[in-house]
């Protein structure tokens, strides 16, 4: 059975922006390996033709259809954002840089 090693936990914790001590990394290596065993139990069963669900019981009509409604004042929309650059919304950088 494949196991998770400490180095993988270190890497994933970094990606998830979790600040773990070396002791915690060791502890979660064991915990994640336990969860991996659960996952492997699920993989033993062929469910390839089944769509995943996201609810204990499926609920219909939780969203309405999108309705397109043109809005005339483009400038006002752009000005409503916290920051803009020309005709674009400007957002904080979220990728790269580290």
């Amino acid at each position: 059975m494949s196991k998770i090693d400490r180095e993988q936990v270190h890497k994933v914790a970094h990606l998830a922006r979790l600040d773990l001590t070396p002791e915690e990394e060791a502890q979660f290596t064991t915990q994640l390996s336990d969860i991996l065993e659960y996952f492997e139990q699920l993989s033993e069963l062929d469910t390839s033709d089944v769509e995943p669900t996201t609810r204990a019981i499926d609920v219909s009509n939780v969203t309405r259809p999108d309705q397109l409604q043109p809005y005339g004042d483009r400038e006002q929309i752009l000005d409503s954002a916290p920051d803009r650059e020309g005709e674009f919304f400007k957002v904080p950088k979220i990728m790269g840089g580290e």
Binding site: A16, L18, Q31, F39, L42, T47, V50, E51, P52, T53
Partner: peptide, 23 residues
């Protein structure tokens, strides 16, 4: 402890669990 472990679970494991749920 368990929240930390959960934060590091790959998405594919989660989706497989949801797929099994339907089955």
């Amino acid at each position: 402890d368990r929240f930390f472990a959960g934060a590091m679970v790959p998405a594919s494991w989660y989706i497989q669990a949801q797929r099994f749920r339907q089955w």
